[in-house]
């Protein structure tokens, strides 16, 4: 059985690609066969975050248009044997993605016995975002504890409940999870940032992970190594927990409290 998971948010720049890359790695590291697809047509970025940008020969739209076979476009990860990346096309043609084309690619991956297909959605609610979620079984809604991100997430939840294959065909709907990221426990403690509980209460969804704001995310993207692979990072541990929860494990949330810091940092709130 293949499970299709969309990583979506509405608002841009909240951490969808970071999350897609790390969750895909986390699942693959547990031996699952994973394909992660960049739906951000025209703004290919997942390849950079995954560190395979120089190995892109064929892309998602090439497969849809029959320019190559699906196998030729799937980039095998060099670190994890069961992980594959399908890059977005850099075309400016807005109609490059079609429902039928996307369905054929997903069917190809299902026939190839992938365990998970992770769809990295573009921002917004246009075609790319719509098609990224349309065939999903599950959704990871990435949200920052900030007003516009939360509101947009709620908008996305509305679309997941009405404009997806599962909702339209009454197959029990898409299973939705919330993933909070760029969480800053210090600011939460100071009352400057909404807490996990606040966001959970407003959106009424279960939380699959809370990823702290972390400098490791930038260094990971600089290096082209998904942050979940950074060994000593809190962000990595938080993503690893999220992957475990996705697979059904029950774990308490971590990194909700400010880490103990030195005297100087405490005095000047660095």
């Amino acid at each position: 059985m293949t499970e299709i998971i969309v990583v979506t948010s509405g608002k841009g720049g909240v951490g969808k690609t970071t999350t897609s890359a790390s969750m895909a790695c986390g699942l693959a590291r547990r031996g699952k066969r994973v394909a992660v697809i960049d739906f951000d047509i025209g703004l290919r970025n997942l390849d950079l975050i995954m560190g395979c940008e120089r190995r892109v020969v064929y892309d998602f739209v090439n497969v849809i248009n029959g320019d190559c076979a699906l196998k030729q476009a799937l980039i095998k990860d060099k670190r994890l044997e069961t992980l594959h990346v399908l890059a977005a096309s850099q075309t400016r043609d807005k109609d490059a993605l079609t429902e039928d084309g996307v369905r054929r690619v997903l069917d190809g991956l299902i026939a190839d016995a992938f365990d998970y297909i992770i769809c990295d959605s573009p921002a917004g609610i246009e075609k790319g975002a719509h098609l990224a979620m349309y065939f999903a079984d599950r959704a990871v809604v990435v949200v920052n504890p900030e007003v516009s991100s939360v509101r947009d997430s709620d908008r996305i939840l509305g679309l997941l409940a009405s404009k997806t294959h599962r909702s339209v065909n009454g197959n029990g709907g898409v299973k939705e999870h919330l993933l909070l990221t760029r969480y800053n426990p210090r600011r939460v403690a100071n009352g400057e940032m909404m807490s996990v509980e606040d966001v959970k209460e407003i959106l009424g969804l279960d939380v699959i992970g809370v990823v702290p704001e972390s400098p490791d995310v930038l260094s990971a993207s600089n290096a082209g190594v998904p942050v979940i692979l950074s060994e000593t990072s809190d962000a990595a541990a938080a993503y690893e927990d999220a992957v475990a929860r996705l697979l059904g494990e029950e774990l308490p949330l971590r990194f909700l409290e400010e880490p103990k810091r030195g005297f100087f940092a405490r005095m000047f709130g660095g």
Partner: peptide, 26 residues
């Protein structure tokens, strides 16, 4: 909590955010 925050007596902006969101989302 840092020393500086002892002198801050701004209204808690997180709770303002939450209240506004609760209304607009509903």
């Amino acid at each position: 909590m840092g020393l500086l925050s002892l002198f801050r007596s701004k209204p808690n902006s997180a709770s303002i955010a939450k209240e506004r969101l609760r209304i607009i989302v509903a």
